[in-house]
């Protein structure tokens, strides 16, 4: 009996420690922006809004959030549109070596936007005149995300029955009509998943914009975050915590919205 109780106590202590490990940073993120002089400790805030005032006055903070939005939404749209078309084709047309192609793409993609390809990517952007261009950045980020997106969506499309499309075909629908009227509505939860995943990915990406954008006015929030230092070279905790909070809110909101509206499913399957 005592062994059981002790075991339980040990178990719950372990859970509590683990929980604390994850909650304390979140608590800090929630309390520090409302504290006049935040440190690395979690303290009861004195509910001041000075820090928000300071962020509003920061010349790059708010514009960078807008830049993040532009980059992530742009990339998500491009990735969803292109991966939906590619995944549909790959799912419905028999190509020799199709699976090998998909795996090769997936493997290569992890290299393409990774650190290893930094130098060639930079060179490529320079040659194409896409350096310091948000459009160029969107294209490159999309290129990195596409293979995985196609891979996930193809799986999704494989599991939706073909008879819907065939039925539309017999009624005379063109391939584009079939995609628009039948396929897209059927795989909507999959598209939502891909969109959210792409937004979250770009939102948190530091390396690519840092590398490819030189104009500070075009930089997204992830890069601006890095510049929030005091004159003395210390991390400016007042600005950092407040900006960090503003930076995370949109992603959380988006997640809640999409999850409520569509639910997340990485595997397709229409309930029939």
């Amino acid at each position: 009996m005592t062994r059981f109780v002790l075991g339980r106590i040990g178990f719950y202590t372990l859970i509590a420690v683990l929980l604390a490990f994850f909650t304390i940073p979140l608590l800090w993120l929630a309390s520090a922006p409302l504290t006049s002089d935040p440190t690395y400790e979690v303290r009861v805030p004195d509910f001041t809004f000075d820090n928000f005032q300071a962020i509003l006055e920061h010349p790059y903070a708010l514009p960078s959030l807008y830049n993040s939005l532009l980059l992530s939404v742009g990339t998500a749209l491009l990735v969803v549109a292109l991966s939906a078309l590619a995944a549909y084709a790959l799912s419905r047309v028999r190509l020799p070596g199709r699976d090998a192609l998909l795996y090769a793409l997936l493997l290569l993609s992890s290299i393409i936007t990774g650190t290893a390809a930094m130098v060639p990517l930079f060179q490529l952007a320079v040659e194409l005149g896409l350096i310091d261009s948000q459009l160029g950045l969107i294209l490159i980020l999309s290129g990195g995300l596409l293979p995985a997106a196609i891979f996930m969506l193809k799986d999704f499309m494989d599991s939706t029955p073909k008879s819907y499309e065939e039925s539309a075909r017999v009624f005379g629908a063109s391939p584009l009509q079939i995609v628009a009227h039948v396929v897209v509505p059927l795989v909507r939860p999959g598209l939502a998943t891909i969109a959210v995943w792409a937004v979250a990915n770009v939102w948190g990406n530091f390396l690519m914009p840092y590398l490819l954008l030189s104009d500070v006015e075009k930089q997204p929030a992830a890069v601006i975050m890095y510049t929030l230092y005091t004159e003395g070279g210390q991390a400016n905790l007042r600005l950092l915590s407040t900006f960090g909070l503003l930076y995370s809110v949109p992603v959380v909101l988006m997640y809640l919205f999409v999850s409520k509206k569509y639910g997340f499913r990485f595997h397709g399957g229409i309930k029939r």
Partner: peptide, 20 residues
């Protein structure tokens, strides 16, 4: 001729009614 041009209509075993 493509299915849409044959002037026929088909009912599938699972009916293939569009769920959305």
């Amino acid at each position: 001729v493509q299915p849409g041009g044959r002037d026929i209509a088909m009912v599938f075993q699972d009916y293939a009614l569009f769920p959305h």
